[in-house]
């Protein structure tokens, strides 16, 4: 669509411009980071300084993850409904094993959290990557064992088997996503980029899947 821009400048804008003194004074008094260089370079963000951008990204991540927990809340609501309807058959998989698997995620959370306190070490993130992959491998082992050895299968196992395999898979997909993000962060760090802020957001994602694992454990795995 080619519509020419209207060259008519707006009245009040020229008016505002004609008062640069009051404008800059007002700006100077309000230490809002995103107006400090508002006239310099039009950035797609309202926020131009990096700290403001980071703050916005951080807020977006926090809100996004918090809202997305509704996804897991809904899944837990469904499982809770089924459990209230009829007795929930105990899983033939070792509860201890499942719990220890989750400890890997918890350990990852701890490592990353402590790692953020330190400066510029790539090791916590790498360590977490290994822990995450270990978590996925163990979860795969348990579901494999349940399916092939214990005959907890879909669809024969009914809704409890569906919940075990289905929700484990949905959660694992989220873990996979977080691990992939973390991997990208490590990759960029290895190539010399400053990834501290980005890492902080990804750690948040890790904490999120850890918390969701706790929900999963309580709702689905516990007898």
């Amino acid at each position: 669509m080619s519509v020419e821009r209207n060259p008519v400048e707006d009245e009040s804008q020229t008016r505002t411009d004609s008062n640069p003194l009051s404008m800059s004074r007002a700006l100077g008094m309000k230490p809002l980071p995103f107006v400090s260089d508002a006239s310099a370079e039009p950035s797609p963000h309202g926020a131009s300084t990096s700290s403001a951008v980071e703050g916005t990204l951080w807020l977006g991540t926090v809100l996004g993850l918090a809202a997305w927990s509704m996804f897991f809340a809904s899944l837990v609501f469904a499982v809770g409904w089924y459990r209230m309807r009829e007795p929930w058959p105990p899983l033939p998989v070792s509860l201890l094993g499942l719990g220890l698997t989750g400890l890997l995620l918890l350990a990852g959370s701890a490592v990353l959290h402590l790692g953020l306190q330190r400066r510029e070490s790539p090791w916590p993130a790498r360590c977490a990557l290994v822990l995450g992959l270990g978590f996925l491998a163990l979860q795969a082992t348990w579901t494999h064992q349940a399916w092939w050895t214990e005959h907890v299968r879909i669809p024969e196992g009914g809704v409890s088997a569906s919940a075990f395999h289905g929700l484990t898979a949905l959660h694992a997909l989220h873990v996979l996503g977080v691990i992939f993000g973390l991997f990208l962060v490590c990759w960029r760090h290895a190539r010399g980029a400053d990834v501290r802020a980005s890492l902080r957001r990804h750690v948040l994602g890790w904490h999120f899947v850890t918390a969701m694992w706790v929900l999963l454990f309580v709702a689905v795995y516990l007898p």
Partner: peptide
Amino acid sequence: ASPPGEGNFTQI
């Protein structure tokens, strides 16, 4: 402006 350009405002 109508339509607004890149960055919407010449000055915030």
